[in-house]
Simulated assay, not measured.
Amino acid sequence: MKCIVLDSNHPDGISLVDLKEPVPGRQELKIKIKAAALNHRDQWCRQRKYPNLKDGIILGSDGSGTVVEAGKGVDPNWIGKEVLINPANNWGNNPSAQGADFSILGMPNHGTLAEYICVKMDRVHEKPSHLDDFQAAALPLAGLTAFRALVYQGHLNKEDKVLVTGFGGGVAQMAVQIALSSGAKVSVSSGEHWKLEKALEMGVGAGYNYKADWINEAKTADRGFDLIIDSAMGNTMNDLIEVARPGGRIVVYGATLGNPGEIDARKIFWKQLSIQGSTMGSDLDFKKMLEWVALHKIIPLVDEVFPLENAVAAFDKMKNSQQLGKLVLKID
């Protein structure tokens, strides 16, 4: 079968190779992958910026397809069903945080950028009927991360004024759609004017260019935010503290700008702010996310679809932050 593997000896960092088709073990389903979406962790693996890397591992955490074979102990009625995969493995019994054995599909274990994959049956869910294969592939990791950040950690409610930073990536666009569907008033920030225009088309109330003096603009127009969803961290944290309303919540699911320098600690306690970390989500979060998406007919944004053979171009587009929504590979 054709697949994309990590390859530190190749100038692209990845290779298109042929591997033997996997055979489902006990409690496993074999899935013919139709579409697989990229995530930033795939690019970070390619750039050797991720822990526990292994050459030869098939990358990819997100995938949709059709069940073609059932292993021992699995209901054969799964065969023929259109499905997507929960990429979060071994969350554990604590809903507040993942356990020590938690891992994400695609590194260090084989992932979805392949014609076939075998996964435990409890990782497999029927595809929401309103989504096509590419939209379904774009949903799992981004949808789960956004849902937990907003609903479980952020305690989203319809009276909130919500700010989603860095609009354009997969998680951010899902966070915007989930927040909008709740009835909340949503604003976004981005460094690209065309991305802000797309957000306005989707129904957000305001878009702020973080390359400009957006703080005073946001404080004047929105009078601060009850809930802020952020993936950048770095020295922008003080900006978020500034635009947070008293009693506000800041939920951080990434740190693309690294660690912050000095933090305005006095404003944190004086405004009685909550700053909460969030990563992926539990199995219950995933189930509730799928139910929310189905109920509100949310459709993940797909920026572009590439053939598997052109995976390098998709990775490069992600590296250069040229996408709005998810980059998806079509796997024939």
Rank of each mutant, 00 (worst) to 15 (best):
S103D: 01
G143Y: 01
K34F: 07
G166F: 10
E82M: 04
K81P: 01
H125K: 02
D239M: 02
N52F: 12
T279D: 03
N109I: 11
V67T: 00
V124E: 01
V23I: 15
V243Y: 00
N94V: 06
K198G: 01
D55G: 15
A138S: 14
K330Y: 05
N39F: 12
M202H: 10
H125W: 05
P95I: 04
D18T: 08
K81W: 03
Q322I: 05
P95E: 08
L141V: 11
K34H: 15
F147C: 10
G203H: 12
R41L: 12
G224P: 14
R266M: 14
L329P: 00
Q43S: 09
A146N: 10
D264Q: 13
S190P: 04
Q272V: 09
N9L: 14
N86M: 04
N235L: 04
V171D: 06
K267G: 05
A35K: 13
L139I: 13
V17S: 02
S189I: 11
A35S: 11
V67R: 00
A232W: 06
N9P: 06
W292E: 08
V328L: 05
D7F: 03
K267W: 07
K195G: 08
D226S: 07
A179W: 00
T165D: 06
D230Y: 14
A138K: 07
S231F: 11
G248V: 03
I58N: 07
D160A: 09
S64M: 14
S96Q: 15
S15Q: 08
D55L: 12
E309N: 12
M289K: 10
V188R: 07
L84M: 02
Q98S: 02
D7W: 11
L257V: 02
K267I: 01
R245A: 06
K34C: 05
K219T: 02
C3N: 08
H110G: 06
